[in-house]
Design a protein around this nucleic acid. Structure first.
Length: 588
RNA sequence: GGUCCCAUAGCUCAGCUGGAUAGAGCAACUGAUUUCUAAUCAGUAGGUCUCAGGUUCGAAUCCUGAUGGGAUCACCA
């Protein structure tokens, strides 16, 4: 619609002898209740015209109509100039933009971006919070790719530390040599089970010590189990063979389990980083910071940065005993990633509980003079809460990812069977369909809301399959495909249509917006933008489907035209859902 | 207590850099299937956009303050 804006600039110049810039023009979609497709707000021009908003609108409208063949008509209501664009323009859009294979395929923009997401701990299975993270990260990566970026999907696995030692120790003490093979249990769940056992036994010890007269704090510190876990961590760091072997074995179990969950979620990675390899990084950055005078040393030898001038606090970057803290590692890992890929942007998909950490991390890197630090971005998303409040793994109030996936498939199965829609499906096709629909419902549910906002999930209320949902959109797609497969004619050629009905025009109008929507979503790192757009599109298509007969159209060329419109809609739905990581079925 | 985030229909959410009578879905009610898939469509009802000021021709949107909710402020990660 840039040509409209340019013409308005011309109009204002011609009518009122005033030069305005394109961004001073407020162009918006015309509201449904009025005639037209685009609307210009004319209030701002009254300063130059020194006439009423109505008159100003009328004058600009006349000018546009006289000078632009695409402008078919206009009407003015108060300060709003509603413009009707000629059907020939929309038809041209359909044939030259939307239908060609190049539609919404961005030219590479020459920029490289890394999206780090998932980043699990290897001591317990994934839960709903991780699911949101994974779906968000994967979708944002798809969207950036579609917007022309070269994307590297990275996963920084937290595979070391005291929490893993807890699982290892509990397994050693209470595991009786259990393995995923011997129990048939998924590896990550087996390891998670021992993490819970550790916690239970540890609590018992604390109670006992308190009974003996120790304070809560003392008991927590003196319990034999925690001491053993700490010893184990020291042994791990010293490279003790037995501990390392156990660690490797149990991590293998976990990766095997995660792999299955990632697979079911449909997410993937190009690069894995492991904290066991990166936890010692960042020490040279500490030295660099000291040399540059960005960091300072306290009497006890600990190293800090003073950020009080920036409204933040003093932050520790190296312990007094010389070891790393979280921040040290992250500084080092940021450098490592940049050295590996020299990307223009780097996105961290991490929950908003770490807002402060990333604020500090990025600020430190800037103060160290890392020019690439400007490209760092914390994609901070809201927590997933239950009606009972926050999920807590230790208290068992978590929604397990694998359980959830299974439940979604089960619900999809029940719904589908209740509707009797799987005649002629093989058993394998059925399973695949249930997975597609179940995951479609779940993914759409999680991705349609703004990432920044916290999300409420009620495990007792099943995710909807009707209305503003994934299955609604999937159903729309399946319906289109069904019509297309019954077409019985070749409809590849351009059809000469004189006039569009309102729904047909609306459909083309919304289809033309797709590339701009992808750019918006990329700019905001928001799959929700795509999700809401595709929903609007599906709604308009369903209205069209209901109002207009496709295969029984009045004449052959109209039938072909409507098939083309359908094909274009299916393409955009499929592609848009693909950006969300959601598959669309051919039949359902 | 300091800092940051959030508040829109009974519920879950849209609402673009300020623009028309604030929109969807769910739940409730009414209607549509001899016709391309009714997981659909059409309609009814549901709102002091938390509150109070301010800026503006115009505020759900921007500013200030208040209230309520959440996060964070470890030599944890």
């Amino acid at each position: 619609m840039d040509f409209i804006i340019a013409a308005v600039v011309e109009a204002v110049k011609h009518l009122y002898q005033t030069d305005i810039t394109a961004d001073a023009i407020n162009l918006q979609e015309t509201r449904k209740e009025f005639e037209g497709q685009v609307t210009i707000v004319t209030f701002p021009f009254t300063k130059f015209s020194r006439k009423s908003p109505e008159q100003t609108g009328a004058e600009i409208g006349e000018y546009l109509k006289a000078n632009l063949p695409e402008v078919a008509a206009f009407n003015v209501i108060k300060g709003f100039l509603n413009i009707s664009i000629a059907d020939s323009y929309w038809l041209n859009q359909l044939y030259t933009e939307i239908l060609p294979d190049t539609f919404a395929v961005a030219k590479p923009n020459g920029k490289k971006v890394m999206v780090e997401y998932s980043s699990p701990n290897t001591n317990k299975p994934l839960h709903l919070g991780h699911v949101r993270n994974n779906l968000l990260g994967f979708s944002v990566a798809q969207i950036l790719d579609a917007a022309g970026y070269e994307v590297i999907k990275a996963n920084l696995v937290n595979d070391r530390g005291i929490h893993i030692c807890k699982s290892m120790l509990a397994w050693q003490l209470f595991g009786n040599g259990e393995t995923p093979e011997s129990t048939g249990e998924k590896g990550d769940h087996l390891v998670g089970k021992y993490y819970v056992i550790f916690d239970k036994e540890y609590k018992k010890e604390i109670e006992f010590l308190k009974f003996e007269g120790q304070t809560d704090e003392e008991a927590k510190k003196n319990a034999p189990l925690i001491k053993q876990a700490q010893e184990m961590l020291l042994k791990w760091e010293a490279g003790d063979e037995e501990v390392i072997n156990l660690w490797k074995t149990m991590n293998t179990w976990v990766y095997d389990g995660f792999g299955k969950t990632y697979n079911a979620l449909g997410v993937a990675f190009d690069q894995f980083y492991y904290e066991s390899n990166t936890y010692l990084l960042g020490k040279d950055i500490v030295e660099e910071g000291l040399a540059k005078g960005v960091f300072f040393t306290k009497e006890d030898g600990s190293v800090w940065i003073d950020l009080t001038a920036d409204g933040l606090d003093e932050k520790l970057v190296r312990r007094s005993d010389g070891t790393s803290v979280y921040m040290t590692q992250d500084l080092g890992t940021a450098q490592l990633k940049y050295d590996d890929y020299k990307m223009n942007e780097s996105i961290y998909v991490v929950g908003n509980e770490q807002d402060y950490h990333f604020k500090v991390l990025f600020l430190i890197l800037q103060k160290l003079g890392k020019t690439w630090a400007q490209g760092l971005y914390h994609l901070s998303y809201g927590m997933v809460d239950l009606p009972s409040g926050k999920m807590k793994s230790r208290e068992g109030t978590v929604v397990d990812a694998d359980d959830l996936i299974n439940e979604m498939e089960q619900t999809a199965k029940e719904q589908t069977e209740a509707l009797g829609k799987v005649d002629g499906f093989s058993e394998e096709d059925k399973q695949h369909l249930y997975h597609t629909i179940g995951m479609g419902a779940l993914k759409y549910f999680l991705l349609k809301v703004d990432p920044k906002k916290r999300l409420l999930f009620d495990p007792n209320e099943s995710v909807d399959f009707q209305g503003h949902t994934g299955p609604f959109i999937q159903y729309t797609h399946a319906r289109i495909k069904s019509v297309m497969s019954r077409a019985g004619v070749d409809y590849a050629d351009k059809i000469d249509i004189q006039e569009l009905s309102a729904v047909e025009r609306d459909l083309i109008v919304i289809l033309t917006q797709f590339p701009a929507i992808i750019n918006d979503a990329a700019k905001e790192y928001s799959p929700a933008v795509i999700a809401n757009y595709i929903y609007e599109l599906a709604k308009i298509y369903n209205k069209f489907y209901h109002e207009k007969s496709i295969l029984q159209a009045e004449d052959e060329s109209l039938k072909k035209f409507r098939l083309q419109l359908s094909a274009a809609s299916a393409k955009v739905i499929s592609k848009g859902m693909g950006l969300l990581g959601i598959e669309v079925p051919e039949r359902m």
